[in-house]
Design a binder for these strands. Structure first.
Lengths: 207, 207
DNA sequence: CGACTTATTGATCGTTCGGTCAATAACTAC
DNA sequence: GTAGTTATTGACCGAACGATCAATAAGTCG
């Protein structure tokens, strides 16, 4: 019925199609749904062709995870860079992490944590990306500290706390969504207090 | 070689053996390793016998998760109940959640989050147990608030924050262990600040 | 001791997974 | 137009999953 002529494409294009399909599946149905057959069907090719372009499926999953994590980090990085002062940068960061968090991406992180026990490639990528996040947040905090807009003597330790806490909170929100809004305020106030950001800075911004 | 006489046991005993094996596997190798065959081999029976006692495997996984989560909650509940004052109860709670957290249990929670997308029974249990945790933490905070030992006007919102944050932090620690100790101090100080517990209360306890 | 209940086995089914390979046909280049 | 390169197919493996069911034997009870 739906038998059509086989279309021959350049390896580069095919590779992109496969990675694109894998990425979409990961975001829509989770990392563990990224299977040879699922990717093949989405691209409209035969399963065997996927492995022809992908050494091992485990590796593809790991690379797709990296792609998604990097994308998110760069997006937040952009938002934060666009913010005005040092305090604003921190507040924008928190809003991005909690308020405007992306449910699909949060679920991919959860999958990553769970799968990394059996997928070594994924485990390696996971720690890399987590480190990248920590360093980014630490840099934002350190900048604010240098500018004396906030108090963050040990920026890295604080960053780890912020990243860990927000990860957990977005994971929660992702699974039983419902109270992101009320949580955002609590998180912002908490971290702001930790950073000794003056209370009036928050109130005049509506937190 | 290892063929031995078949041993016939009472349904109750067999059921316990199966649940025990499933629990051990979940803690040692993760929730997704709780399979018909793995459980059967561990008990020393044939795979078919497992399903004979267990309706559906998905349900067994969900029930095992509940067992593990409840166990942990009750253990922490006990520790907290044994603590002296209201402030101490909160500090003990945090120590249990972050410092003395159980790596295997934290990983089971991560697995649960990830698997619950495809296992509805598990998803239901997961939300139940998460609610139980929230309510427990909220109760501890509310008690402290009533006793005027700390400031927690909206105990449930705060509890959700604490649970979410500690979940994320223990998940992190579970995967790339290494900085639990330094994290504990940060978390304790953060939450203590949020609860407006006087600083001297912490210093004289060594935080 | 013999009969009955049922816990237990062993065999089997259908599905999905990752991975391999010869055969084929679509483009390219001469 | 024709030959050659190779992207693509289709047909396979073996392994692991959940699940079902008749046949069997262990323990119990009269």
């Amino acid at each position: 019925m739906t038998e059509r002529k086989r279309i021959r494409k350049s390896p580069a294009v095919r590779r992109d199609e496969i990675r694109g399909a894998a990425r979409a599946i990961a975001l829509e149905q989770g990392l563990s749904a990224v299977t040879q057959r699922a990717v093949a069907e989405r691209v409209g090719i035969v399963p065997g062709l996927v492995t022809h372009y992908v050494d091992r499926m485990e590796l593809l999953v790991a690379e797709i995870f990296r792609e998604i994590a990097r994308e998110e980090l760069e997006q937040v990085r952009g938002e934060v860079a666009g913010a005005g002062g040092d305090v604003d940068r921190v507040l924008v960061l928190l809003r991005e992490l909690i308020g405007d968090y992306r449910r699909d991406v949060a679920l991919v992180w959860v999958d990553g944590w769970s799968l990394s026990r059996r997928n070594d490639d994924l485990a390696a990528v996971l720690t890399e990306e987590a480190r990248a996040w920590e360093e980014f947040v630490a840099a934002v905090l350190a900048d604010g500290h240098r500018a004396e807009a906030l108090h963050a003597p040990d920026a890295l330790a604080l960053a780890r706390f912020v990243v860990g806490a927000t990860d957990g909170l977005s994971a929660q929100a992702a699974v039983w969504a419902g109270y992101e809004a009320e949580t955002l305020g609590t998180v912002v106030r908490t971290v702001a207090g930790l950073l000794r950001i003056p209370r009036e800075e928050l109130t005049l911004r509506g937190y």
